[in-house]
Structures are given as C-alpha cells and as structure tokens.
Computed example of a mutant assay.
Amino acid sequence: MRGDGLEPITPREAVDMWLDRLQSTRADETLKSYRYRLKPFLEWCEKEGIDNLNDLTSRDVFRFDSDRRADGLKVSTLNNQLGTLKQFIQFCERIDAVPQGLPAKVEVPSVDLADRVNDEPLSANRAETIRGNLNRYARESRRQVMLELLWHTGCRLGGLRALDLRDCFFEESDLERLRHQDDINQAALEAVELPFVYFRHRSETPLKNKREGERPVALSQDVADRVREYIDVNRVERTDSDERRPLLTTEKGKHARVSKSSIRREIYIMTQPCRWGSCPHNRDTTTCEALEHTLEARCPSSRSPHPIRSGSITHMRDEGWPPEVVAERVNATPESSSRTYSTNTES
C-alpha cells in the first residue's frame, strides 16, 4: 500500500471487480450496458498510459470528458457514459483505488428537453387519452394490455415481457398455486388483494433487480378486465421453448414471447398523437418519416416504455401515494420514487 493509502489496480481489473460486485443485484443486460458505457474510458486509459487508477486525477477525467465531447456525441449519450463512470469511480473510492473526493469532481452533463424528448414522462392526461383511444379502437388487443399494465403497475419493460399466464391472478381459486410455493413472499401475498399480477425473476426473463424485484402488484378491476378480455379473445396460444406460456405472445415466428424491441415499437406507435387524430407538430402525415416502419421514435410526441413508467410513478406521487408504497409497487427505493418522480409534467 502506498503512503496515501491507495492500493494499485488497473482500470480493467477495477471494472471487472465492480461488475462482479453488482452481479447479485443487477440483471445481466444492465451489467452489459455498464460495461459498454465504460469501454471508451478503458480504451482512453490505455491510450493515455494510465495503468494504475491510483494515478487518476480530476484533470484526467476532465480530459476524457473533453475528448468524448469532441467526438460529437449526443448529450444524452454523454450523460449515460459519464453517469456510469461516476458510479464506477465512487466504487473505486470505496476500495481505495482512486484519491478521496475524485467522484465529486466528475461532472455529468444534464440533458435538456431537446436531447431527451422521448424520455419525458408521459402525463396522466395523455395516458388517459391514449387509454381511451385504445379502449375504443383497439379493445381486447395486445397493445391495449401493454399500455394498461405499464401505466397501472409502473413496471419496467423487462417485467412486462416476463409475465406468463400463470402470473395473472383474477379469482380466489388462482391463489392455490402460490400458497404452497416456498420461494414466494407469503407476507407480500397476504397484503395484496385480488386481482393482481405477480412479477417473477426467472433465468430466461430476468427482472432488473433479480429476486429482489419479485412482487405481487394489485390491479384495478377495470385493468384486470382488459387483461382477461385479451387472454380470452386475441391472445395467440403459444408456448416458449422452456414450456412457459407467455402473457404477451407473437402471432408467428420462431419465438413465442414478444421481444423487447417489439414492445418498444408498439409503445412508440400508441403514443403518436396522429394515430388517433391530427398531428400537433404540423407535419404532413403522408410524408412524415416517423410513420415509417422502425422510425416511429422520431415523432417528438412518441414515448418509449420507460417514460410510461416514470409518468405512472409521477402520477401516483401526485395523487398522494406515500413514497414507500410507490417504491414497493414499482420496485424502486422510496428515495428514488420521491426525489425523481414527484414533479408534475404534462408531456
């Protein structure tokens, strides 16, 4: 150990150690995204000859930041990369790999409205309008169920996709298959009323926080009715390769369970105002690129699944739900649900 209390470690060793530490609490996909975001930093350290994080200074971080900006990256991309770098350096500080105080000197650029238009939370007013349109024009459809569950439960995309038929509980008789399972949180089960869905972590469809993300989430009777209608009328009966029966199935193709990319595209389409009426952006709907296949996200008003979640959480908080209740429902920390989502937005 050096006189300053730091213990030598290479950047790559530290990244591996950090990701190994997170393995028990983060989904594999999340860890892959962290590694991807840190890849430019590792390459930069190698180019600059920084093979010991003990020698990393705030000036080095500033030069890395400047180099990334010079590459013409979008502010949102910089926000993701430097935000992850800051978390990594905070870990390095805890293991005596970098000088104390270094994480505080990592400046994560804020993302203004122009750079995060598709990340703005969906407002309650827009959500109710879209729900009404789906109920009128696409009742009993897979799209309707996607939107209803995302908005009503505040779940993540991965949680929605992971649901099986056996995770939907509408009547008392459905509970029998849960009450005798040792790996079920029986206390949480007793606290929730029918109808509800149960988010489960399974290796083929992992939840972001793994077993800690497992929870039953109560549904309103109206939402439960929409889910049952879809199951009874329009769900295509298909079975996964692992003999599971997904709630959201595909009509054809190799995979029975709908993909994450398909869910994103469906949500982009549902949140385009011109699908239900006129365009608020004065675009010609006969030539608008956002109406082309795979380009739906280019509509300024379209939203991906995450803004549905953040909008749902915001709505719960604005309705007066306690932070700890919201946090348990959506699998977030009370601090996060209170700090991040308790602001009104009309996006």
Rank of each mutant, 00 (worst) to 15 (best):
Gln87Lys: 12
Gln87His: 11
Gln87Val: 02
Phe88Asp: 00
Ile89Phe: 03
Ile89His: 01
Gln90Trp: 04
Phe91Val: 03
Cys92Gly: 08
Cys92Glu: 07
Arg94Asp: 13
Arg94Val: 07
Ile95Asp: 09
Asp96Val: 00
Ala97Val: 03
Val98Pro: 05
Pro99Lys: 15
Gln100Val: 12
Gly101Ala: 09
Gly101Met: 11
Leu102Ala: 05
Ala104Lys: 12
Ala104Glu: 12
Lys105Glu: 13
Val106Leu: 02
Val106Tyr: 09
Glu107Leu: 12
Glu107Cys: 06
Pro109Ser: 01
Pro109Trp: 05
Ser110Cys: 10
Ser110Lys: 15
Asp112Trp: 11
Asp112Ile: 11
Ala114Trp: 09
Ala114Tyr: 10
Ala114Ile: 11
Arg116Lys: 14
Val117Leu: 12
Glu120Ile: 15
Pro121Val: 08
Pro121Thr: 12
Pro121Lys: 11
Leu122Asp: 04
Leu122Tyr: 00
Ser123Glu: 10
Ala124Val: 04
Arg126Gln: 13
Arg126Asp: 15
Ala127Pro: 07
Ala127His: 01
Ala127Leu: 03
Ala127Asp: 08
Glu128Met: 12
Thr129Ala: 14
Thr129Gly: 01
Ile130Gln: 00
Arg131Tyr: 05
Gly132Leu: 04
Asn133Cys: 15
Leu134Asn: 04
Leu134Lys: 04
Asn135Gln: 13
Arg136Cys: 05
Tyr137His: 12
Tyr137Ala: 06
Tyr137Gln: 12
Arg139Lys: 12
Arg139Met: 08
Arg139Gln: 06
Arg142Trp: 02
Arg142Ser: 04
Val145His: 06
Met146Val: 14
Leu147Pro: 07
Leu147Gln: 10
Leu147Glu: 02
Leu147Cys: 09
Glu148Ser: 14
Leu149Cys: 10
Leu150Glu: 01
His152Phe: 13
Arg156Trp: 07
